[in-house]
């Protein structure tokens, strides 16, 4: 009896090990496959030339510029708002009130909305209603709404992790609340806040559906915030779905993966340094 039970357990545990192996394997499969197929495409000209004939020929430089442009716009809008909201919630509200519950509930709801719904909203509100057109600005504003909850939540956690003695000492020395927040709390929480922002960069870079509906898919090089822009992920979608150039799609996909892995790595690094700093 007891032995039978033992073997049964061993079987299940080996199954779970197999499952873990499967996940590691499928991740490797995706990365290695795209890397092998895409490595040949990536070259200096691929990175620096603008796409020609709808992306069939040439490089992807304008889509790289568009991606950076959109992401930076989104971060510039969202970071101050998200950090401000986090400071308000953690430093200016002593208790959980109806107001804080509404604010946190909204942020949570925002995090759960699918990107295609953000796309629809961004289209009708920014593109049509505010007459911003398909543009870097419309796309950036839509992305800013999407990443706001992440920035808020990570900033809240980072600020809460700052020891309460820091604040008490500052206040005891006669500093006002804002002086304490801006000169003591925020600098101490900065690495954690930055980690949240870097994670949002990853999301903004990979976002496709919302960007397609708000920034458009024009292939030109965007100069002004009012210019339309086609990001790398939108470019990948259009190359793949319309069968324009599989070769260039592989190259674009590989570049996206490399970008996201780099972003994740940097975020982890910054997080580790943050916990080290608070401990030491």
């Amino acid at each position: 009896m007891a032995r039978n039970r033992r073997t049964g357990e061993m079987a299940i545990i080996s199954l779970i090990w197999a499952g873990a192996g499967l996940v590691a394997l499928s991740l490797c499969a995706i990365i290695v496959y795209v890397a092998v197929k895409g490595a040949g495409t990536i070259s200096w000209t691929f990175l620096t030339e603008v796409p020609r004939r709808m992306g069939k020929e040439g490089g992807i430089s304008s889509t790289i510029v568009s991606t950076v442009y959109l992401t930076v716009t989104a971060i510039l809008i969202s970071a101050p708002l998200g950090v401000g909201a986090a400071v308000h919630l953690t430093e200016y509200q002593q208790r959980r009130t109806v107001l804080t519950r509404i604010i946190e509930g909204s942020a949570e709801a925002l995090a759960g909305i699918p990107s295609i719904v953000f796309g629809l909203f961004g289209f009708v509100f920014f593109v049509i209603y505010l007459k911003l057109g398909w543009s870097v600005l419309s796309g950036g504003l839509t992305l800013a709404m999407m990443i706001l909850p992440t920035i808020m939540r990570t900033a809240q956690e980072a600020i809460r992790a700052v020891p309460v003695e820091f604040r008490e000492n500052s206040l005891a020395l006669g500093a006002t609340r804002w002086q304490t927040v801006s000169r003591i709390v925020l600098p101490a929480a900065l690495p954690g806040i930055v980690t949240g922002i870097i994670l949002s960069v990853g999301r903004a870079v990979g976002e496709t559906a919302a960007v397609l509906l708000t920034a458009g898919s024009a292939l030109g090089m965007p100069l002004l915030p009012s210019d339309p822009a086609r990001s790398m992920s939108v470019h990948l979608y259009l190359l793949a779905s319309e069968g324009i150039s599989l070769e260039r799609a592989y190259g674009t996909a590989l570049l996206l993966i490399v970008l996201v892995i780099t972003v994740n790595y940097v975020a982890n690094l910054s997080l580790r340094r943050f916990s080290y700093r608070l401990r030491g």
Partner: peptide, 10 residues
Amino acid sequence: GIPSVVYGFF
């Protein structure tokens, strides 16, 4: 972290 469009492409 891998973008959904990359999953779709794969």
